[in-house]
Design a protein around this nucleic acid. Structure first.
Lengths: 113, 113
DNA sequence: CGATCATATTCCTATATCGGAATACGTCAA
DNA sequence: TTGACGTATTCCGATATAGGAATATGATCG
């Protein structure tokens, strides 16, 4: 098998830097495709494709506005990502000396299972 | 071009669910490959490959212990991820006037695939 | 040395990407 | 309708994956 689809979840969708850039831009409000493409220095089809991925994982919503289609942020899908990564917070806040001690501590008290 | 390498950064490395599982397990302390493989129901070569990716992005470090190699967590690389995602926190916590407006809009306009 | 355990790498295949170019689709204005 | 604009899709090629099987490397001990 190959790598999981970019559309399989938010983790995969935001692995692409350009898609992260798009999401960041959309915090300022809704925008049409061409706007995003120009601002981020990518082609219009390129932007459309990235937006399709973001839409499929639910990180972005579209709304027709005349000739244009306005893309807007829907950040709710990022919450699980934030929570998962947040589960490691104590580990990057600890110094490595303390981390080693902590690890040894765990080894000794691993009886609990 | 193809998708960015899984080893290009933490974002890509943690896009794979099994690698996230490995990292989660390692919070309890260092572990040898076979241990991880068995606990997560994957093959030994499979675990080794995932650990290689994690090591290349610096999320994991190894230390030889006799015949074994103990893998340990180095979560510092997750901090940038946490911070990036955290930049959207107010958007999923917000009461979301804009989103609500948008939803009402949808009811009036036509659907979108 | 030779045997054995622990781990890493290689080879293979099916699949999925990203980007560019060309093109199709959709909507509005005259 | 026609034309023009905004956007989406399709086709293409190069690349890279995850996983299984087989094998290679490494370390320890008798």
């Amino acid at each position: 098998m190959a790598r999981a689809a970019t559309t399989s979840d938010a983790f995969n969708a935001i692995a692409e830097p350009q898609r992260r850039d798009i999401l960041a831009l959309l915090r300022a409000g809704e925008r049409p495709v061409t706007d995003l493409a120009q601002e981020l220095g990518m082609s219009q089809p390129g932007a459309s494709k990235h937006l399709r991925v973001l839409r499929e994982v639910g990180l972005v919503r579209v709304r027709g506005a005349g000739k244009q289609r306005l893309y807007g942020l829907d950040a709710r899908g990022l919450r699980p990502v934030h929570e998962w990564v947040g589960g490691f917070e104590r580990f990057w806040n600890e110094s490595f000396d303390r981390l080693d001690t902590y690890v040894q501590d765990l080894k000794q008290t691993r009886q609990e299972g």
